[in-house]
Write a protein that binds this DNA or RNA. Structure first.
Lengths: 224, 224
DNA sequence: CCTACCGATCGGTAGG
DNA sequence: CCTACCGATCGGTAGG
């Protein structure tokens, strides 16, 4: 029962019969999606507070009051950005893991865990720094601007996302490849990765693969 | 020639002769300091945009227009917070290094570098998470809200602060204790440390010493 | 989804 | 540093 549905949410009450003069309603999903994507971009680059709903409207070619036809408040738009961002991240992570597992021959357990951590880290960098990567940075840096109920919902998605990492780190710890306390290691590692959103430049020297290699060498110094 | 003077700046024009009715001017330094400290607290917890100059005035017992007697704009106040925060951080780091060096007997070079990194990390956590630690988090998370000239000034202080870390990491790399690319390692390490401002809770289980130990074990797995 | 609009808040200033 | 105030902007809404 995914809390983080990506689809435009089952429209509660739609006028039955043939739609008249409501051309806009027909591509409601598209407009909504455009608003979320545009808002993510603006929130990421200017911050939530510094972005007006008029900015967002203009970004998708609407008039100033129109975003409120799709979202009941500016905060609801922010929440949608975070929710859809985390939903997508969880999906991408699951696919990356599945792809890795399907490639595995009977390797040693440490080799398996080592390879899986590399996959998780690379995927995390992709989500954070790759094309269309505005959603997760917004989630990371606008935490203050959502209310408690929303925070709880996002926290649950984050827990789901992080749950996969814990056994991997534990296995590496048990194998002697990770020397730090597993819980603190997880927090420090996520910090190292997440902070890259502040300094990484797609046009600069280091690639996402370089980053992944550096992170692996930094956290796990002995290759199994 | 420290750009980041902590003192109230040599007041340019002060009425000569005995001050009359200008009681407030007498403790100008105090009021200014109170504004900076109060603003840091509010900026840290609510964000720059979500904090009004009225909030700041109220926090130090002033009327709404009065902060502008001390600072020409809200942005100037933010800049002061960052500037003084970095100035203090550089000073504290220098003292921590000096204290460490005065304790050193003729150790092996790797041992020296290892111990120095631990000192730098511990000091960084203190600055970030210890008492009165609002300035640096504000600097880290409100980067967007200062203008380019200000950004350049802060970047220079940051470079000064980070300059000390580079030879230490290089020495550990040369000794085979750090396996990752030195430049990327530095960025990832600062990320791991800085991110702790988001999750560290002073009342919770882990202490700053625990954090330091975990970070050292994570980044440098072999003890010299 | 647009038009027209409102109430509130905000950064900042003049003048003392 | 206070009083009184201004212009601008903003989130949001009614009514179509």
């Amino acid at each position: 029962m995914p809390v983080h549905t990506l689809s435009p949410a089952a429209t509660p009450s739609r006028p039955r019969g043939r739609p008249r003069k409501t051309v806009a309603t027909l591509d409601d999903g598209n407009r909504r999606r455009q608003l979320v994507t545009g808002a993510a971009r603006l929130f990421r680059h200017q911050g939530f507070d510094a972005t007006s709903t008029r900015d967002i409207a203009a970004a998708v070619g609407m008039q100033s009051g129109s975003p409120f036809y799709h979202f009941k408040s500016k905060g609801a738009l922010l929440f949608a950005v975070m929710q859809e961002g985390m939903g997508g991240a969880i999906e991408r992570q699951a696919k990356a893991i599945a792809a890795y597992q399907s490639l595995q021959k009977g390797e040693l357990p440490e080799q398996y865990s080592y390879g899986l951590l590399a996959v998780l880290i690379k995927n995390h960098f992709d989500i954070l720094l790759g094309p269309g990567s505005d959603f997760i940075p917004v989630m990371l840096y606008e935490w203050r601007s959502i209310n408690e109920r929303q925070r709880a919902a996002i926290a649950q998605l984050q827990a789901e996302y992080e749950a996969v990492w814990i056994p991997v780190l534990q296995a590496l710890f048990d194998a002697g490849l990770l020397k730090a306390d597993v819980k603190l290691a997880r927090l420090l590692i996520f910090g190292a990765l997440n902070w890259s959103a502040q300094w990484f430049d797609r046009r600069k020297e280091a690639s996402i693969d370089d980053l992944t290699a550096a992170a692996m060498a930094l956290f796990i110094q002995e290759r199994p």
